[in-house]
Write a protein that binds this DNA or RNA. Sequence first.
DNA 1: CTGAAAGCGCTTACAG
DNA 2: CTGAAAGCGCTTACAG
Lengths: 341, 341
Amino acid sequence: MAKIDDVARLAGVSKGTVSNVFSQKRATSPKVTERVLRVSRELNYVPNHTARSLVTKKTMAIGLTIPHGNFFFSAFHNQFINGVILEASTYGYRVLLDMIAVEEVKTPSLASYPIDGAIVLGPTKEDRRIQLLHQNQIPFVTVGKIMNQGIEDVSTVNNNNDKIIRDICNYLISKGHRNIMFLNAGQQMTVSIVRTEAFIHALEAHQIELQPHMIHYKPLIYSEEYMRYGYDETYNTLANLEEKVTAIISDDDRTAFSAMNALKDLGYSVPEDISLFVICGDLSMMHQVTPSLTGMDLQPSELGVQSVKLLMHKLSVLEGEFTNHWIVDSKIVERDSCSSV
Amino acid sequence: MAKIDDVARLAGVSKGTVSNVFSQKRATSPKVTERVLRVSRELNYVPNHTARSLVTKKTMAIGLTIPHGNFFFSAFHNQFINGVILEASTYGYRVLLDMIAVEEVKTPSLASYPIDGAIVLGPTKEDRRIQLLHQNQIPFVTVGKIMNQGIEDVSTVNNNNDKIIRDICNYLISKGHRNIMFLNAGQQMTVSIVRTEAFIHALEAHQIELQPHMIHYKPLIYSEEYMRYGYDETYNTLANLEEKVTAIISDDDRTAFSAMNALKDLGYSVPEDISLFVICGDLSMMHQVTPSLTGMDLQPSELGVQSVKLLMHKLSVLEGEFTNHWIVDSKIVERDSCSSV
DNA sequence: CTGAAAGCGCTTACAG
DNA sequence: CTGAAAGCGCTTACAG
């Protein structure tokens, strides 16, 4: 690989000048620019990214930290990541994918983390990733609320999960449902905690008392229960509960399908006997299946874009004012899986 | 951030020694090791990754290049990426996600690409990404066959797509199907080309002549047709074709759902009237829906693991012999969507 | 087992 | 607009 000295020598200029034609930080005369570029092309020269990083102290990469161990990509995450990559590339940033154990204390890494900033997906209570980032003074933004971290003023991009659950509950209650089962996300995620509170409040607002066994949490991904989540909860709850459940709120499409299977085995059909609402599902899945599934549009791609934007502000690559807490809109998309009782 | 000089001074040793206790490349006495480690902890010191990279000429990152523009993560890709990340972390490697335009000639990047090697997902004919990698002398392995690249001896990890299609066809033909429609992947992908050939051969082997309009290709992702792929092809073909289609092979679960919607609108049911086979779908989706979908297990996670292993061999981090072409097994998983005619 | 010194390939004040 | 020189924070022969 040709290096800057080779180009400088052959073009008859100094290294500094070669550097400038590539970085564009100082103007170079047209003649010199053209000559340097030509020589560079001949030698197949391209500035060494690492050497540049060492002096600029920028890696031009952001980390996307995905909770490892209790997580699996869903359509939501796919779209989110698409948004992140596309937006990051706008600023010349690349995306480093990283799974960090949320809880286990691993042996500290042997070297500093080669990123300028990070995006933390799906924070949990007392999330270790956040502690690590904070400790290493790496700017970051979380996608989702943080809790119990003892860190001030963390930048966050998020849906309004409180409002989402209230909207869903009001939607179902307005259709006459009063016995609503909630298949929530994993218990360790802060989003689940927010949702549960909102769920209880929404019911209370309509004088509905929360029945036991009406809120369930997604098991850890590698557990035996994981693959049966949705089915077991639905089957057991509907088979045993005194009061009849008439609506189910499901965290994602997979869980919804699983629940529908249980309903089928119990002899119920959707939406005639039971209404089904999916919070976070693949749009094309949701409308392709029968019945098509009513759900929320969370704008995952927009969440990705906004989290990159916020991070770029923190890294001062984006100028101007910004809010530390950005909310991405969401709205109900009605399809065929919810009906009135 | 503390640097190696600070630690060396405070611990009363040379920088070289500090370097050695962290890199473990040369032994250090217990006393010195302990002292250096203690000081490092006090100063919150961790070796600078970039500085190290500059001299070792290793970034300890591999790139995962995803075709941009005509691509969307599916469950297959999720599991694949999971395999890649997990296996890569075994060797201390991180994964840089990258979407490179497959065809457009973008302005050349302003700096070298900070990866030691790359994995190319879903190669197309005359794939630009492969040319770029080859040109920049970055070791890479493709997941999928390459065609028309003019490059010798490219390392490849792949399913045996020829065998997969033959197996599927034989499976369907053994159930009496002779009019089989094939909803293939995107036309530009090499996998589609291999599959189409195999499809034709499999039919020929049973003296079945390929009817027109029996092979379709997935449109580019941002096209208007994309969202209707599966539905339109199924509807139009079944409504207009003289001979009745009795089985459909679908590239993925999304397309299968789409096709099922068309079948419903046409008054056909699966598997009574039409059999449906999914090549590459989300296992949990496949068995959660009704009817559960018969399909192939492609072992995407294993594909990810093996492509990292092969790349590590090329980077000489893994010793010993290796084959340049690794095939990952696949097998039919029977569920409820295929029946005999 | 340890140290002193050169060097990895750039960028960046500084000077002109 | 350009150049000479120092320096980014490490690792690595070389020597002992």
